[in-house]
Structures are given as structure tokens and as C-alpha cells.
Simulated assay, not measured.
Amino acid sequence: MEYRHLGRTGLKVSVLSYGAWVTFGSSVGVPLAKKLLKQCYDGGVNFFDNAEVYADGKAEEVMGQAFKELDIPRSSLVVSTKIFWGGKGVNDRGLSRKHIIEGTKAALKRLQMEYVDLIFCHRPDTTTPIEETVRAMNFVIDQGWAMYWGTSEWTAAQITEAWGVAERLGLIGPAMEQPEYNMFNRKKVEGDFLPLYAKYGLGLTIWSPLASGLLTGKYSKDHVPPDSRLAQEMYKGLKEKKLAQDNLDKVDKLRPIAEKLGVPLAQLALAWCVRNPHVSTVITGATKEEQVAENLKALEVLPKLTPDVLDKIEAIMQSAPDAPASFR
């Protein structure tokens, strides 16, 4: 396993990590979670991602109980949660001081932990002043409930504003951002955020490296595996967006590249994300032990991503942002 600093912090995270979205608390209970988490940990993974909204809090409960039963030293884990959607009450969502504090305390209770290493603002809250959010996140850190705070799916302008508030008040700014990043979705990571890496040392914990499973090659217009994410009713809209014919055509054209390299398409897609040095960690998901094993092998693909291979991928995807960016 390779470990990278989380941006400009002294914290090191495994370049491949594991997230609880969609799986924990729904299709994955504590017994299976223990097997998956232990396999990840034994493979060198030290970062495990969660959120208060995942399975309405059950994902945190499952992860917390699984880690408790595994009895892994807390100091060897980097655990995160994300705050925004905490419930149905009028003050149970958003990034007000009230919800950040109450949501964090509730998350820690579900996780059965005294602190999380990372806490994210799960989305920007345009109804709450960023100064209130920055102050609240610093309070969370001062209380010892989290080590670092960051954002998820914020714009470069919003992150810059948060840093401006923090610097003006002598507070801690967001150390990391959690954006979607994959072969289809590159604008923020390779374009919008470019000035932030040098100026603020922004670290990235990217999600959806396989574009919700599209880059595994298991989907077609007429075939959606019944046990897959896009087969679930709650992801009907996502299914229609991801399984557009143009996207499927691009995936079909990527297959020969993966076959020539002798690797599964999913491993190629994961390695493609890892090769970006601004990415601190790539969050993966899995409901089966064999999937964890396959994901961990993605690091073996990195040496195969030569400039020629990357050019062939770009010729198919044509997704590079207008801003100049090269991670080769």
C-alpha cells in the first residue's frame, strides 16, 4: 500500500480507502462489515469514510460496532464522517452551528468513538454564513471531536471564502475536499481546484472513482445486475444519467485498452485516479471480499499507465477540462 499526506497536513492516508456509502446499514450488516473492514485493514487501508446521512445513520452504527468487535487500535485508523443531512427536523440539516455540533455528537455516539479523524461539510449550505460554519468546525476541533475539517462538493470559490474567513479570524481552514472524480468527471479536480493545491495545500479524498459502477463494465443499456447500486429504486435518476448511450459507448471503447494491459477495467479506472498526485486517497466500495481483493490490486496497474496509454484513454473520453493540467 502507498500512503500520502492529506494535503498539507501531517496525516498520512492509504491511497486506496474504503467507504460505507450505499452498502453499510442496508445490504451490509455487522458480520459482513467485519470481514470487509478486516480485509481492507490487512491490505494496508487505514482510511474509512462515512456520513451521518448514509442509511439514516445506520452505516455509522454498523462501522462503529464492527471496529469495536475487531478491536483494531484506534490510532491505526483514520475515520471520517460528514455533516449536512441529519434528520427531518428543521434544524437537523445544513451547516448551522447548532446542527454541526449536535450532528457531530450524534455521529460519534453511533460510531462508538470519542473522535473522528476527519469531519466534512457534506455539501455547501447557502443559507448559513460561511463564517458561522468555519467557527463551528473549529469548535469541533477544539473539543477534540475531530482532528481536521474539510468540505465535500464545494466550489473553489466557496473553499477560498472559507479560507479567507479562517485566516482573518486566526482559525483553521478546510484541509481537504471530497469531490467526485473519475474518467468522466474531471473539471473540479483538474481545473477549478488547481490554484487551491499550492495556495492552501488542499488534499482530496475522492469518491465515485468508478462512476457509480459504470467503469466496471458490468452495465449495458439492457442489463443492470439486480444486486447493483443502479438497480435500486432510490437511484433511478442516477441510473438514467449514468447509463446514457454515449457513456456506455465510451466504456466499450475502454475495454480493449484494459484487455491489452491484462487488467480488469475497474482496476484501470482506479489506477487512473490514483496517478493524480493531488489525490490523497481514492475511496472504494465493496460488498464482497473478492471485490476488496480486486480493488487493492489496482496499485499494480500504475506502472502500466504510460503516456501512450493515457493518450489513448483521453482520445476516447475527451473529458479533460479546458484549464491546462498534466498529472503524468
Rank of each mutant, 00 (worst) to 15 (best):
M1W: 15
L6Q: 03
V15Q: 08
Y18H: 09
G19L: 12
T23P: 05
V30M: 06
L32K: 02
K35E: 10
C40W: 15
N50L: 05
E52C: 06
V53A: 04
K58M: 13
Q65C: 00
I72D: 12
S75K: 06
S80Q: 10
W85Y: 14
G94T: 10
K98H: 14
V116R: 04
T128I: 13
E132L: 05
N138W: 10
F139Q: 05
I141V: 14
W149V: 06
T151S: 15
R168Y: 07
E180T: 11
F184V: 11
N185C: 08
N185R: 01
K187P: 10
E190C: 01
F193T: 00
W207K: 12
W207Q: 03
S208V: 03
V224M: 14
Q232P: 01
Y235E: 03
K239C: 07
Q245C: 02
N247M: 04
R255T: 08
A258L: 00
L265G: 07
L268C: 15
L270G: 06
L270M: 04
W272S: 07
W272Y: 15
W272E: 11
V279T: 06
A286G: 10
E290P: 15
K297P: 03
E300F: 05
V301H: 11
P303F: 02
P307N: 04
I313D: 14
E314V: 01
I316K: 12
S319L: 07
S319R: 00
P321G: 06
D322Y: 08
P324H: 00
F327Q: 07
R328W: 12
